[in-house]
Design a binder for these strands. Structure first.
Lengths: 338, 338
DNA sequence: CTGAAAGCGCTTACAG
DNA sequence: CTGAAAGCGCTTACAG
């Protein structure tokens, strides 16, 4: 391993001078600059980040909190895998590397903040919803820039889909197609989730604006985001309210569960029941019929998060919350009535 | 930030003694051990990895090479996203953290080896196929333990699916169901890929063992792993060989393309054409009819890779190549003839 | 069993 | 414009 001392020795300058040239700091004569630079190139010098980080307290490391205990889809989750991917690309362009913040540390219970300190990360991104909100607050409180791309955590800047607007569009779409008796199946995590709450609010508002009141008996709140629970929910909903003709389901995976329920009940989609999902998973276009759904804009979410985090890294204040529009993907799971 | 000097000062011992206690090295009296440990706990001491790494040359960091330029599925790839996820969990249990090795470094062209040195990684895992085999060889040549979970790189230990065996099972399945005229659509990357080669070899052998010769006109070799090219390939195959009744396609995504082709040609699956895919993507069970396919065992692949890497980290030799069986998932896309 | 000394590779005041 | 000195937080011989 070649160090700045090797370069100093070879060129006859001192280590600090070499350091300044390599970092572009201080004032250095052009001649020595060139000499040192070419020596560095020739010797194939590579900086040692540990040493640099030790003294500058800057690591060019972004800690990723990716803990998918609630959705259980890992990196394959249609939104979070995509967000992580784009986030990574954009951050690397800026010279930052991504490191996973471990939450399964064997050696004693370590908090996320402990891990941040251990690895000296410059900033943190929280990719998916999870239950350790208190630990994330610790990070923010410690002054480490931190951003969330989904979970709403008071005091942590957030980039998230315009859920309410999407809910409104879903409601409008049903109404436009002549549906009056509608249902809603919400996803959740131990309790009913925020994203679902927002989608429901928009949905309800769209109906209300069209003179339709969404009754409580038409809303089923799941405690998970799993297909099976949605299937069950659909059954309850349709049994309690056989008048329902269309249901907005909180994600495609759950919509698939709802569709399964319909099939078992001998109901045809969209002839008997219309369905709108959320997330535009790959499977959605393969469902029979292809599922009408919404696509969350992972690109935009990730890029916005990167910009904001970069801003925070510079010490600037950023907005508390940026909302990113989703894209409505109409397919064939909603029937036009009359 | 509390350092070992703070602990030394508080307890009256020296920094080296504190260090030894914290690391469990050297011989220390039980009394001082307890004193120092409790002081550390009380002061909420956290080691600084940069400092430790600088001197020990060990970072407890595993570099991930995840560069999905060929499949373009990012973390959502049914195999690689899953492998990374399990690999991460297992590695973290062992006290290692995962860091992405950047390949888009803005500041001058850096090789993966440069990035390894920069970040001081202890070992490297290559998750998906990519074209920078030479750079990966550099890593191995530099003595950094390195393992691949898919790409075959001479000299780099490999954990990979038993592709040939899977191909054999696919061939047998067709034959058992009375198929005699079979086709094969291979996936590839710029050139025809190794995984496909292996699957083809097994497929061909199964047919041969049953007295059937797979002619070259029944094999279509794609240059990508994309759906569209498979769709095109299916068209060519079926046009050139209208006698074909069953096709083995290199992945499910491509199988979906092949199915699309059939639909456009007015051919029904499985009545006119039977199809077997590979990967068991979520979409596969939603296809119409549900696709018969193979599931690669991400869990087993990742866990094996971790064990081997751990072994290499200890300085042990490991096997050159470990093959993991895949699971055959029969569904409804293969017709039983006569 | 414990500690004084040196050093990992680098950067930051500071002096000239 | 350049360099001597000090130090980041830690560990490793080595001596006692």
């Amino acid at each position: 391993m070649v160090t700045i001392y090797d370069i100093a020795q070879k060129t006859g300058f001192s280590a600090p001078t070499v350091s300044k040239v390599l970092n572009g700091t201080g004032s250095i004569s052009e001649a020595t600059r060139q000499q040192i630079l070419s020596a560095a190139r020739e010797m194939d010098y590579k900086p040692n980040m540990s040493a640099r980080s030790l003294i500058t307290k800057k690591s060019y490391l972004i800690g990723i909190i990716f803990e998918d205990s609630l959705m259980r889809r890992g990196f394959e989750h249609p939104l979070f895998g995509g967000v992580l991917n784009v986030f990574r690309q954009e951050m690397e362009k800026e010279g930052y590397d991504l490191i996973f913040l471990s939450n399964t540390s064997t050696n004693s219970a370590q908090t996320y903040l402990d891990r941040c300190r251990y690895r000296n990360v410059d900033a943190v991104v929280v990719i998916n919803p999870q239950d350790k909100q208190d630990e994330i607050l610790q990070i923010a409180a410690a002054g480490i820039p931190c951003i969330s791309t989904n979970e709403i955590i008071e005091g942590v800047p957030l980039v998230i889909t315009q859920n309410e607007q999407a809910g409104y569009v879903a409601g409008e779409h049903f109404v436009k197609n002549g549906h009056k008796n509608l249902g809603f199946i919400a996803g959740g995590a131990s309790n009913y989730s925020r994203a679902s709450t927002e989608r429901l609010a928009g949905f309800r508002k769209a109906l209300k604006d069209n003179g339709i009141i969404l009754e409580e008996s038409c809303v089923y709140r799941c405690k998970t985001w799993f297909r099976d629970e949605a299937k069950l929910g659909m059954k309850e909903l349709l049994t309690a309210r056989p008048d329902i003709t269309g249901v907005f389901v909180s994600n495609d995976n759950m919509a698939a569960g709802a569709a399964e329920c319909c099939e078992e009940m001998g109901l045809s989609i969209p002839n008997d029941i219309s369905i709108i999902g959320f997330d535009d998973e790959t499977l959605s276009s393969f469902m029979n019929p292809p599922l009408t759904t919404f696509r969350q804009d992972r690109e935009q979410i990730a890029k916005t998060a990167v910009q904001m985090l970069l801003d925070m890294l510079k010490g600037n204040d950023v907005e508390e919350c940026v909302r990113v529009p989703s894209v409505f993907v109409p397919r064939k799971s909603v029937k036009k009535l009359n």
